[in-house]
C-alpha cells in the first residue's frame, strides 16, 4: 500500500482576543491509499480542525499554521497542501479531496436545488456542460440511494429528510471521484438506524470506487465498524495510533483505555454507574510543556510533568504518546 497523505508536526493556533489557543500541537500521521483512517477524540480535541486546515477551510485569521507539512501524493509525487496557493487549492478541493460535513442542513445552500449543488463541482472540475452535469448529478443521487432521483434533483435541501440530506452531502463530496474523502462526523446529527445506513453507504462507495477515507467521529461504535486504523486525539495531541483491532484489544494510552472502558455494554447486567474519566480537558491557552493528559491520568508519575512524551512504538503499526508502559504496568525505560 502506498501513502496518499503524510502529515508531519502540524501545529496550528487560533489567535483570538482572549489569547492564543493551541489547537493542534504537532500532529503527525500517514494515510495509506484505499484505507479508512478514523480520527477519534472528544469535542475540541482538534479532529475537524486537523482535516479542515489541510484544505485551507479554516478562517485565517484567527487560525494560523505555526509549522508542519502535509504531503499529498499524486502518482508518487508529493505536494505540500499547507503551502499551496489559493488557485492550486481550488483544483484540489472537490477534485482530489472531497469533504463531507456533519450537519447537512446548514452545510447545504438553502436557496439552491440539491441537484445544482452536486452539479456545480462537475462543471467546475470536469468541465461538463449543464446537461451532462445534470444527468451525472441524477446518477449520483441514485447511487447514494435517494429514491426518485430525477424528481429529487429539483428539490431544495429543506424538502429532504435528515438522512437524505446526508446522502446528498455524500454525493457532493464524491461527485468528481476524488481520491480521498474526509467524512467529518457525518452521522452525528442522525438517529441510530439512519446512522447505520449512512455508514453502510460510505463503506459501499469506498469499496466500489477505491477511495481513501478519513472518518472523523467521537463514536467508538462507528469506528469499530468502519475503520482500518484509528488515530486518537486529545487536547490537540495525537495520543495513540493503531490498527483498529489492536486498539480495542490492547489500548496503549491511558486516555484510550479510559474511553473504551467508558463505553456502555449491552450485555452488562450489573447496575453500577458507567465508568468515566475524572476531570476536564485542559485549558488550551497555554503551550503544552508536558503530557496534556497528566492532570486526569491514573498512571501519572513525575516524568509526565517534565516533557511532552514522544511516540513510542507499541506493536505493529501501533504507537502511543505515553511514558507509561500500560502493557507491562511500569514506566518505560528508554532514557
Amino acid at each position: 500500500m502506498s501513502t496518499i497523505l503524510s502529515v508531519r508536526d502540524l501545529t496550528l493556533r487560533f489567535h483570538t482576543f482572549d489569547g492564543v489557543v493551541h489547537a493542534l500541537n504537532g500532529i503527525s500521521f500517514d494515510v495509506q491509499a484505499g484505507e479508512t483512517l478514523a480520527i477519534v477524540g472528544e469535542s475540541g480535541s482538534g479532529k475537524s480542525v486537523t482535516m479542515m486546515s489541510l484544505l485551507h477551510l479554516l478562517p485565517m485569521p484567527p487560525a494560523r499554521i505555526a509549522r508542519g507539512e502535509a504531503l499529498f501524493y499524486t502518482n508518487g509525487t508529493p505536494t505540500d497542501l499547507l503551502k499551496m496557493s489559493r488557485a492550486d487549492m481550488h483544483r484540489v478541493r472537490g477534485a482530489q479531496i472531497g469533504y463531507i460535513f456533519q450537519d447537512a442542513l446548514s452545510a447545504l445552500n438553502p436557496v439552491m436545488t440539491v441537484g445544482r449543488q452536486i452539479g456545480e463541482s462537475l462543471v467546475m472540475h470536469l468541465g461538463m456542460d449543464a446537461e451532462t452535469a445534470r444527468k451525472r448529478a441524477i446518477d449520483l443521487l441514485d447511487d447514494v440511494g435517494i429514491p426518485g432521483a430525477r424528481a429529487r434533483y429539483r428539490n431544495y435541501p429543506h424538502q429532504f429528510s435528515g438522512g437524505m440530506r446526508q446522502r446528498a452531502m455524500i454525493a457532493i463530496a464524491i461527485a468528481c471521484n476524488p481520491r480521498m474523502v474526509i467524512a467529518d462526523e457525518p452521522t452525528t446529527a442522525l438517529d441510530v438506524t439512519v446512522q447505520a445506513q449512512i455508514v453502510e453507504l460510505a463503506k459501499r462507495i469506498q469499496r466500489e470506487r477505491g477511495m481513501t477515507v478519513v472518518w472523523i467521529t467521537h463514536d467508538l461504535g462507528v469506528v469499530a465498524g468502519i475503520a482500518d486504523r484509528v488515530l486518537v486525539m486529545y487536547a490537540g495531541c495525537p495520543v495513540e495510533i493503531a490498527p483498529v483491532d489492536d486498539l480495542y484489544d490492547h489500548p496503549q494510552h491511558p486516555y484510550t483505555r479510559g474511553l473504551l472502558s467508558a463505553l456502555p455494554r449491552l450485555d452488562d447486567r450489573s447496575r453500577r454507574d458507567l465508568a468515566s474519566i475524572q476531570g476536564a480537558p485542559p485549558d488550551m491557552m497555554a503551550s503544552p510543556r508536558h503530557c496534556q493528559f497528566a492532570w486526569r491520568c491514573p498512571y501519572v508519575f513525575d516524568r509526565c510533568w517534565k516533557a511532552v512524551p514522544p511516540y513510542y512504538p507499541a506493536g505493529k503499526g501501533h504507537a502511543t504518546q505515553c511514558f507509561y508502559d500500560l502493557e507491562n504496568g511500569r514506566p518505560r525505560t528508554d532514557a
Binding site: R93, G94, A95, N109, M124, I172, A173
Partner: peptide, 18 residues
Amino acid sequence: KNEDYVRTAYSKGIGDRQ
C-alpha cells in the same frame, strides 16, 4: 460568508467569484 454552506462550496473547489 461564515455560513456552513459557503464552507461547503469552498470545499467543492468553487472559485471566489462564483
